[in-house]
Simulated scan of single mutants.
Amino acid sequence: MDHFSLVFTKQAVYIFNLLFGVTAISVLGISTIIYCDYLRFHHFIGDHSWIAPFFLMAIGGCVFLITVLCCYGTIKENAQIIQVFLVLLAWIFFFEIGTSVVIYIKRNQFIGTLDNSFDSMLNNHVKNEEAWNDIQTELKCCGINGPKDWTEKLNITIPKSCCGIQTTANCTEENAVKIGCKMHLLKYLERLCIMLAGTGFGFGWIQIVVIGYASFMFNEFRKSFGQFTQRLL
């Protein structure tokens, strides 16, 4: 191996590091967006803390830091640092896939939480008027299970946000959206879980493919550097 081969393998390692950095930033960004989406309706999810996005955000951040470590190891031509990089990345891969599996399996566990929080929000509808208007406008829904929650349970006028349009006239049961917000929000949260799990699965398998190629290139890098050093001596 000559100096050109050593330079070539180092450049290949840099390219793989770039791919890892892109996947890390993508996982971090998508997880953050999903969590911000979730926060819009946190009033109706009660005290339930959805920590799943935090796990993938942490994974994205860790992968990015490990990528920086690998770049440092490549610059310093330190095979030990590169080996540490591969071990850490393998552990993170399994953690990422495991987290994605748990998110997908437990995506239906919001039902019990939503039952309690929606009842509480409806009973305190005066204090939570803005939150009700936001969710009914955003998700195009009405009440917990439908407009009758307002007229029969509370015996009050249906909020204008149930009609989906801004009007000066009162919203009637005939004009109101017939679908309740609990079912809409449940389906919405399930979609977020599937998106989050898909993000972890998708980028996780991309990373494992890159790990395979990177392992080969790192091995070539070590051989090239060793042979190049022997020739200098």
Rank of each mutant, 00 (worst) to 15 (best):
S5H: 07
F8R: 09
T9G: 01
K10W: 02
K10L: 03
I15T: 15
I15N: 07
T23L: 08
I25V: 15
I30A: 10
S31A: 12
I34V: 11
C36E: 11
Y38L: 05
R40Q: 09
H43P: 00
I45V: 14
G46H: 03
W50E: 02
W50R: 08
A52K: 03
M57H: 02
A58E: 05
G61S: 08
C71G: 14
C71H: 12
G73L: 05
T74F: 00
I75T: 13
E77C: 10
I81V: 12
I81E: 05
I82G: 04
Q83L: 11
V84T: 13
V84Y: 14
V87F: 11
L88G: 08
W91D: 07
W91R: 01
F93W: 05
F93D: 03
F94S: 04
G98H: 01
V102C: 00
Y104V: 00
I105N: 04
K106C: 00
Q109D: 15
I111S: 13
I111K: 15
G112K: 12
D115L: 11
D119I: 11
D119K: 12
L122G: 04
H125E: 13
I135C: 08
E138Y: 13
E138H: 13
L139C: 12
C141Q: 11
D149Q: 10
L154I: 10
Q166R: 04
T167S: 14
T168P: 10
C171D: 04
N175H: 03
K178M: 02
G180P: 00
M183W: 04
L186W: 03
L186E: 11
K187S: 08
Y188M: 06
R191C: 09
I194V: 15
G198I: 02
T199W: 06
G200E: 07
G202D: 05
G202V: 03
Q207G: 06
I208K: 05
G212S: 08
Y213T: 12
A214P: 01
M217V: 12
F221N: 05
K223W: 09
S224A: 15
F225H: 15
F225K: 15
R231H: 12
R231P: 01
L232C: 11
L233T: 15
L233R: 15
